[in-house]
Write a protein that binds this DNA or RNA. Structure first.
Lengths: 341, 341
DNA sequence: ATGATTCATGCAAGCCCTTACATTTGGATT
DNA sequence: AATCCAAATGTAAGGGCTTGCATGAATCAT
């Protein structure tokens, strides 16, 4: 007898097809282990009954979900969108489903979501940046969940990661800025607390400045959240100083665009009155006028490779290799040259 | 005896604390049903062992996951980001976890992801727009999963939804365009196939034009994917005509920004040579120069309310009410006035 | 034709939790 | 001190699936 209202189970299918539950299960999971004729018969019944496996039961029995989780700090700006899209496409091609959560740059929320995703049976996790509590790393290890860190790469850190060296990239950009004759640098940084990428970018600037002995100095650093509006406010703050910087280097493109727009509001010409630089090379960087000097990051490539590596880890073909990708400078209109000083 | 390597189970905790599994379960799920002293003891063991409930087993036994799934067409541009962020925040406040998937505007992928999310125990689903196969709607009904449609509202449709009337909103914008003296309209629409929002926006323009008898006409419609680049290409195509439109109305802001940029490349001044309008009022609309005339949509409000309603549905306090939100025009620099004709 | 081997299928244990129901406990009431 | 009641806890029955092992049938080599 077939239960009328509730969703059909493996058992229902098995009975209706006149085989054992094991055979039905095998039809679904390893079709080659079943002879064609039975498989066809079973599949027909599956169709008719509209059977869908109960995931909870499946997870419990098989301990595999073919689900990968990713937690990104934000969806509100495009920083991660492209990379994650590529990540998803590659996973899809490999038969995995991606589930995404956004933490709004809040470490507590991120932690909750890590637990949620793990509890829901994620086979592996993609996380952004290294920095999080030792406790949660312990938890992940204990749960035996492969984790790949993206958007960051550092040789100091032993976690498997794919990304670029935020510090070095920003250092390179800074060098270029200095080469353009700038000696007074203002910085708008993302919140560094709990965000190693923001931190390293900031350090990258400071280091590069320290290493060059042309008398270049950092006038001031303002930390603020990654929003256009706050980028603008921070810019205004920097411009209030007596001794104005000739260039404002921003922790990412979103902040830089905020600065750019505010400059216009304030009647300052970029780059004649002040230069502005960003980081990430999101679409926006090319849309604004003047176009933004920034550091280009191979987002899609990173996403794609992350998927490949993480799947390998999940399938125990790798225990986590790290990959460093190369970023590259995009010098555009927003960076000007200082002639005399 | 306690298994040494694998993650601890309820049983391990129970044994170690000297109580039954039922008591441990109650400590975790309904603490008031357990006396304080035992609860403390149990929780201590939970801590020590680093116990986390097995989600699969829990789902199976309890049939509730406190997980909501959402499938959005894209993460690559900001259209959905803000609304989804608000949706997530509100869900979080109510104790639910949001899991997101992106379908890349592909109905087949969307369908797969619906199944994936349902299979993984989503208590309810947020979907964008009405249009999808009858089959998948049947599946959802069969599985008894509450579904709320967002970013769309139509009285014709019986599904619970929250959104605005895409057709009417676009009609209103069109009326304003006509009032500005425009008589020759070019249209860049999103792909209408499988996208009711794109379709209704297009219809909204065409209807409004038909209803006004000032001799206004639609010169040409170009359908293209929602990317800046394709918006630009479509714009170029429209500008090739003998009898050029005086205004190009776009299906969303992304297309409009593409058109705007291309206009600049082509040496056309906006709005003197040609006006451009968008839809959505994403951040970009205010960033570009000239600023974009568009239709503002209360994204955050929509996300928030969607969360409230969907949770009600999941908790059987509602069987799906629909809410219409009001959009509003934002007339900005990109729309000019035609004086003589 | 016979034994050896392979292949398709079935049997049933086990995965880990929740919860209805049964039992025990300890205090309040008489 | 006996009785009763509610609160606290225990017992055990699922829930739906996968998979190691067992079985039986079919194929092959000799």
């Amino acid at each position: 007898m077939q239960s009328s209202r509730s969703t059909p189970t493996l058992d229902d299918v098995a009975k209706s097809a006149g085989v054992s539950t094991a055979t039905v299960s095998r039809c679904l999971n390893s079709p080659k282990r079943v002879v064609e004729s039975t498989r066809l018969r079973v599949m027909k019944v599956v169709e008719e009954l509209g059977y869908t496996p109960n995931f909870g039961a499946r997870v419990m029995a098989a301990k595999r979900t073919f689900t990968i989780g990713a937690i990104i700090p934000t969806m509100e700006n495009a920083i991660f969108a492209r990379g994650i899209q590529a990540f998803q496409e590659e996973l899809h091609a490999r038969g995995y489903t991606l589930l995404i959560s956004s933490s709004a740059y809040n470490p507590d929320v991120e932690e909750e979501q890590i637990r949620a995703l793990v509890a829901r049976g994620a086979d592996g996790l993609l996380l952004i940046g290294y920095e999080r509590s030792a406790e949660i790393y312990r938890y992940l290890e204990h749960q035996n969940i492969p984790v790949l860190i993206a958007w960051a790469f550092s040789e100091q850190n032993s976690h498997a990661s794919i990304g670029f060296d935020n510090r070095a990239s920003m250092g390179e950009l800074t060098q270029t800025v200095i080469d353009h004759g700038h000696r007074k640098i203002g910085i708008i940084s993302g919140i560094t607390k709990g965000n190693d990428r923001a931190e390293q970018r900031l350090e990258g600037i400071i280091e590069a400045v320290a290493q060059c002995d042309l008398g270049t100095k950092v006038m001031r650093v303002v930390e603020t959240s990654y929003e256009i509006e706050s980028g603008g406010d921070a810019f205004a703050e920097l411009m209030e100083c007596e001794d104005r910087p000739t260039v404002v280097m921003c922790g990412n493109d979103v902040l830089a665009v905020g600065a750019l727009l505010r400059a216009q509001d304030l009647g300052l010409h970029v780059p004649n009155d002040v230069s502005i630089t960003g980081f990430d090379d999101i679409e926006l960087a090319l849309i604004v006028t003047p176009s933004l000097t920034t550091v280009h990051v191979p987002h899609r490539e990173m996403g794609r490779r992350a998927a490949i590596e993480l799947v390998k880890m999940v399938e125990k073909l790798s225990d986590g290799a790290s990959t460093e990708l190369q970023s590259s400078l995009r010098v555009r209109e927003s960076l000007g040259r200082i002639k005399d000083h």
